[in-house]
Amino acid sequence: MNENKKATLFIQCLVDTIYPEVGEAMVQIFRKLDVNLSCPTNQTCCGQPAFNSGYRKEARKAARHFIQVFENAEMIVCPSGSCVTMVRHHYPELFTNEPHWLQRANSAAARTYEFTEYLVDVLGFEDVGAKYHAKLTYHDSCHLLRGIGVKEQPRRLLSHVQGAEFIEMNNSDQCCGFGGAFSVKYADISTAMVTEKVKNIIESGADTVVGCDMGCLMNIQGMLSRMGSKIKVKHIAQILSST
């Protein structure tokens, strides 16, 4: 096991601005596991919104800022598979024509981990001593699953939560229809997609839906709230920090 556990927090902008409690839950878990934490307070956004909309110049600007901010971090840990996909896969693409920056981008990519990936694959924890009484179901976020191949880690972590019953929903790996700007620009399609996702969540019989990405969860929560549903929406850190 890692004797000298270290993590530099890379806080997804949605967590920073709308869901700070998710970041705090993550901090709580890391403190419990004796992970040395640091958190650059001048970080902002990885640039994915611009990149996904095609604005590469602007995304590059955001990437440069990120790379500089996290230049000295050994282990960069983020509670979002989507942001990690951006750093790990798309940063190097952005700098193919700038060798100096490409090197720095590759370095940042190699040091960046998603939260559950870091817990299970790097630290070797599957049981973090959490207790949470609920029927849980899990939504696979697209970029987490297909972008960086994280599927089992969150499930293993959840399987060790005392008091929790885990139920797989149908098509847990189907996109919830968030897609960033897509959810606003193509609202009809996005709505149809999240409607199906929410239907699968409800039909699973779970009272809490868990995910590893606040983008998807915000979308799912938004619809459940509009429907007046009692189903709770939680980031996995919020489950794992409960005792």
Binding site: N52, S53, C142, H143, R146, G147, D173, Q174, C175, G177, F178, G179, A181, F182, K185, Y186, I189, S190, M193
Partner: peptide, 8 residues
């Protein structure tokens, strides 16, 4: 533009 880039 009208996709979520879900990668399926």
């Amino acid at each position: 533009l009208g996709e979520t880039l879900c990668g399926a």
